[in-house]
């Protein structure tokens, strides 16, 4: 793939996001797109948004469960960038422009120290974590009908939409990261339950993976960064007007409404 094509793919994704339209999978045209190039496409659009005044506030980790990895035929997670404009707080009406949104219960980490790869392990993550908090990630895809392959989702900022954080935070030494139970409801009905270990055995392990992955790309996780560590259940479709709630037991809750049409 040449530079102009990478740029062209990035533009296509950017326009789809702005216009709330979908495009065919990029991998329909370049079936063997290298992962590095897919991240290059993602970064082009990250720089573009930065240039327009948005601010990167952290990262999201995707493909953290065995079934998701199996579905895309991969054996490691991927990541995307979180912007200030994506951030909602529990109780908000989510009015972010979305195309085909799905919700996922997650644990978010907020860092109190930089995490400099490539030798980061779970203990380093625990020491660098200021607190953890429940979060609902609203994922979205600019690719028609979510027909994504690994390179498609990576190029598309790991299928990010926006995210909603809990008002309750918990010190990491007070949280059962692996056995904390999550209950996701839509309009009062339980749609999914799960526990932290669904994220590659331990959400802190996913954060360690991210720190090391970023170091291979020449960047680091910074103090103050928000990290969405990965879904603890399957993703569930949401529609305009839906009420979404997540209970993460003693770790707190997240509640919000999807703006009605």
């Amino acid at each position: 793939m040449v530079d102009t094509q990478i740029r062209e793919f990035a533009d296509r994704l950017y326009r789809a996001e702005k216009d709330l339209t979908v495009i065919p999978p990029l991998t329909d045209e370049v079936s063997d797109m290298a992962i590095d190039l897919a991240y290059e496409i993602q970064l082009l659009n990250v720089e573009k948004k930065r240039g327009q005044g948005d601010r990167v506030v952290g990262h999201k980790i995707g493909l953290t469960s065995k079934p998701m990895q199996a579905m895309l035929g991969v054996n490691e997670p991927d990541f995307g960038h979180l912007f200030a404009s994506m951030h909602y707080q529990s109780g908000d009406v989510v009015d972010y422009p979305l195309i085909q949104p799905r919700v996922e219960p997650e644990l978010a980490f907020v860092l109190q120290a930089d995490l400099d790869g490539p030798q980061i392990g779970v203990q380093d993550v625990l020491q660098a974590t200021r607190f953890v908090l429940p979060a609902v990630e609203i994922i979205d895809s600019r690719i028609a009908d979510w027909k994504i392959k690994l390179a498609d989702t990576i190029a598309d900022n790991a299928s990010s939409g926006c995210f909603v954080l809990s008002d309750t935070v918990t010190a990491v030494d007070q949280a059962n990261l692996t056995t904390a139970g999550a209950i996701l409801k839509i309009n009062g009905e339980i749609v999914e339950t799960g526990a932290g270990a669904a994220v590659i055995g331990n959400p802190a392990r996913a954060v360690a993976w991210l720190a090391n992955k970023l170091s291979s790309l020449g960047t680091t996780l910074k103090k103050g960064d928000i990290i969405l560590s990965g879904a603890v259940s399957r993703a569930v479709n949401v529609r305009a007007g839906d009420r979404v709630s997540l209970s993460f037991g003693p770790l707190g809750r997240v509640e919000f409404t999807m703006q009605a049409n």
């Binding site: 065995k66 059962n176 692996t178 056995t179 904390a180 139970g181 999550a182 209950i183 339980i190 339950t193 799960g194 526990a195 932290g196 270990a197 669904a198 590659i200 055995g201 603890v232 259940s233 209970s247 037991g249 003693p250």
Partner: peptide, 26 residues
């Protein structure tokens, strides 16, 4: 609180399923 209770099931050391008590009729 049995509805909030998190459960992790592993097969041969690998996480196979997770859930919470609320999966049982709330």
């Amino acid at each position: 609180q049995l509805d909030k209770l998190g459960v992790v099931m592993c097969r041969n050391g690998e996480v196979a399923q997770t859930g919470a008590g609320a999966a049982v009729l709330g």
